[in-house]
Design a protein around this nucleic acid. Structure first.
Ligand code: MN
Ligand code: MN
Ligand code: ZN
Ligand code: ZN
Lengths: 139, 139
DNA sequence: CAATAGTTTAGAACTATTCTAAAGTAAGAG
DNA sequence: CTCTTACTTTAGAATAGTTCTAAACTATTG
């Protein structure tokens, strides 16, 4: 008989696959982040969520973990707000609606949206990525 | 005989036109910002520039002034970096290259670049603006 | 188990930005 | 002009998000 608290197995595998030790904290955060579909979190929102579920983890570790996951390719960062950093579990080609009133992000699939007419970058530089943010408000 | 230290007259007019008192500090900053073509500044870069020219102005006033100019429609803000806020003297329709290594912005005219296929925003919300950031690096 | 490299964390430190409240100044009235 | 007042500037304190430090802890391997 195996005792399973949560769907922790997949998280452990996922961590091992990218060369990260499956510590309790990393497994718990990975479970929260990758359980369902795509998510957009800030360090503090994720920390609050974990704390609210009774998980014991420091904010510093949440920051460390989000960066490690990002460097491992499990997450990407999204810049939409000068005062908060967002992390996105969807690392594929896509763009965002940003609800300025709520501070929330909604994905726009990469197949739906297109950017045309990007001029050639200045000499010696190459395009790293093209980000589109559609800012929306009530009204 | 009129003593003119700088091209200060246009700045004074511009401030009066938007209902801002032409104080020494606002006139000096407006002169720096709007003298030549388009500029992209951070509060600190503008403060450094002013200080370097021997102008006496506090960083708090630079922040105040940049926000007042923005609210008056003389500037707009650009979000490209989670750790710094940029202000843009070009308030027209355009997008940006962001040189991630240097932290500098280059305009892309609005007529050159196009975004197609933006889905309808969620119910009750309307599009405020669409921002495109083309992130470029050496290589 | 023991040894060790990697990890977590409390709290200090940092950085960009905003706030406070006291001193200074532009603008209109007289 | 000069007075009066509302607006402005500013030094320094305060915030907020994030990173750093270094000491305690733990996953992994032999
Ligand atoms: Mn990083
Ligand atoms: Mn503002
Ligand atoms: Zn996304
Ligand atoms: Zn611009």
């Amino acid at each position: 008989m195996v005792k399973v608290r949560r769907d922790t197995g997949k998280a452990v595998e996922r961590l091992r696959a990218v060369g990260l030790r499956p510590t309790r904290q990393r497994v718990e955060l990975a479970s929260l982040l990758f359980r369902n579909g795509d998510r957009h979190v800030t360090a503090e929102s994720l920390h609050d969520e974990a704390s609210g579920l009774g998980l014991k983890i420091s904010l510093a570790t949440v920051y460390n973990t989000l960066h490690q996951f990002t460097h491992a390719g499990l997450l990407r960062q999204v810049v939409v707000d000068a005062s908060r950093g967002y992390f996105d579990t969807n690392t594929g080609d896509h763009q965002h609606f940003f609800l300025e009133d709520e501070g929330t992000l909604i994905d726009i699939p990469g197949e739906e949206i297109t950017v045309a007419g990007v001029p050639q970058p200045p000499a010696g530089l190459s395009v790293d990525r093209v980000d589109v943010v559609v800012r929306v408000r009530r009204g």
